[in-house]
Design a protein around this nucleic acid. Structure first.
Lengths: 193, 193, 193, 193
DNA sequence: TATGAATGAGTCTTCATTCAT
DNA sequence: TATGAATGAAGACTCATTCAT
């Protein structure tokens, strides 16, 4: 399995740093290779092309979100608590990796339509987890029966995304994790029964 | 005044179509010129460079949102009603120009850091109008005194943006304006007193 | 006769200034027109194309050298004195017009092969005058019978040109006319009988 | 060291031929690449940009003049003989490479101000060698104590340059090396004690 | 005569990808 | 596996010249 080989991860991590430091379009394959400490050609032994690196970066990093959200879902029973922890976890993961936050919130959005479709497909798993929480909340009576599930998810994800992007655009100058409770409260007001 | 000359508008409109059809990076200056029915060089009589076209597109189109929101603010007294109309107006404008929606939600985000800063500066006027509505609502007692103004604005704008982007990504397959009342209700629940 | 019309001279003078200020390749037709206070299109009522402006500049300005040298030849009888006055006159004319000196010594040499051939044809009249002085000097016994006329002319013109170019490259920092006597003496030593 | 790699010299030589054949402005990078038998992009592995090619051409070729003049200076004791050999050597080198003579005498002068400053800096080494010969000659009593060193150098270099350019403009139709003794004699007359 | 808006041909440079070693 | 020198396609922008007014 290629993704367990050390150079695979080495290149992924190098790509995150190279893109965060130089911006999406200035992160040439040669810069990623240099950052990873390998030759340009070596990249192509692990990735089909440059787009494949970017998709893999997103895949690997989304896996972190998905796994931790999965743990939250498993370890808790209360949907409201799950939602609270999800928001808090999302902010914490990005707070702990400012390189990553810059890449996901700003640089990766500069990709073309094809790449964005693939990114959305990866994102879908995470959004499905959120949908499940919401559905469970409605069924348990924690959230209002009147809400449109898809819309509620868009409100939640759109808010998280906007708050995070705003934090990145302001050069991480405030503590993102401190926003979690307030964001949660605002969102909860909108959907609770 | 160059922006009143017919060719200026002609090129702006051509750029929106060319970018919507081809994507940001595949909308070469020559394609925009062809779409506008002018020579390549003519573009440079009206715009400093390609980036200047994009900024101008955004400026011109945001002016539409800003002006109509201004009318809403002037013609109404109730902050809650202003918010309702703002959301509805935002969705209506984009529904009426699917080319534009594709450009603002997807293609313009592929710009580099510099361009994005300029775009944000233009967007700020619109966000300031939203802030004013929220502030008025808090002061009049319509919205909760406990909400963080900036956060509330991020929830509202993030939601509108996410819903719109989702609609564009689904190729405008559903009627965006029908979402307005539900979006408004969800958001209002979050912030009302 | 077009060259007696005021705008003709106006454009010629504007071209000298525009080229001196901006360099040959940065002296666009539009800059020359602006400097002359006429519209771009007006240039083409007086000149066939850009190259024609440059040739005309050189023609007009060489005419000054040729006319003053002609006066020197007519007003004097001694070939040695004619040579002395020619060198002095050459330096004086350029000293009095630093714009012109920059154009002839530096900028006009950036022209292409065709233009250079035409410039040489104009220059030939001046060099023929110099040849005549040298021939007269040899026949009168003032200059050595052993000198190769063409070579002597190349030594003289090459020296004048090198000294002048050096003066221009050093931003006219020293008084060029003060060099005339020394240059004359050195050159005279080389050719006198 | 890049300038020892075979492709570096290959491109330099190709540039000389391409410029001599097409003229400075018509020697596109793609033509130089084709002449060198490499891809366009390969040029940029060895040179920063087109201007860098031209500077390098001049550097490499001036090195030939400088080295052979250095040998002349070392192997001889008589300043007069050094001057004679310098002139002869200069004409011989250019006679043996008519491509180069066209490039240095005509095409390279079409460069802009910046490039010309860089060319002058390279030329300075050669002129300093000439200055040293002249100084030695004055001190040894071979050349007149009354001459202005800088002026004498300008006479000599200006003459060599004018004679060579004249030969190139006449399409190398006469034997340049045959001019050497006569040029030497004329110049020597001007400066000898 | 005079204008100046419009034209469109022409080129340097970048960088993802390949492949001989 | 790993290298890195070589490839070559692709595009924004300039500016001399024209021509309708």
């Amino acid at each position: 399995m290629k993704r367990e080989k050390p150079k695979y991860k080495q290149i992924i991590d190098a790509a995150v740093i190279a893109i965060a430091d130089n911006g999406y379009h200035q992160a040439q394959v040669s810069k990623i290779a240099k950052q990873a400490g390998v030759a340009d050609g070596t990249i192509y032994l692990y990735f089909k092309n440059k787009e494949d690196i970017l998709i893999s970066v997103f895949e690997e990093k989304m896996a972190v979100f998905i796994e931790s959200l999965n743990n939250i879902i498993i370890e808790n029973t209360d949907p409201t608590e799950k939602l609270r922890l999800m928001i808090q976890n999302h902010f914490e993961v990005l707070s702990n990796d400012t390189y990553l936050s810059r890449v996901t919130q700003l640089e990766l959005r500069q990709s073309n339509r094809d790449l964005r479709l693939k990114i959305n497909a990866i994102l879908k798993v995470y959004l499905d987890q959120l949908d499940a929480i919401l559905k469970e909340g409605v069924e348990s009576g924690a959230f209002s029966k009147d809400i449109d599930l898809r819309l509620a998810r868009q409100v939640i994800f759109g808010t998280i995304d906007e708050v995070t992007t705003s934090w990145v655009m302001k050069d991480h100058k405030f503590d993102l994790t401190l926003q979690a409770p307030k964001v949660f409260q605002l969102l909860l007001n909108g959907i609770k029964a």
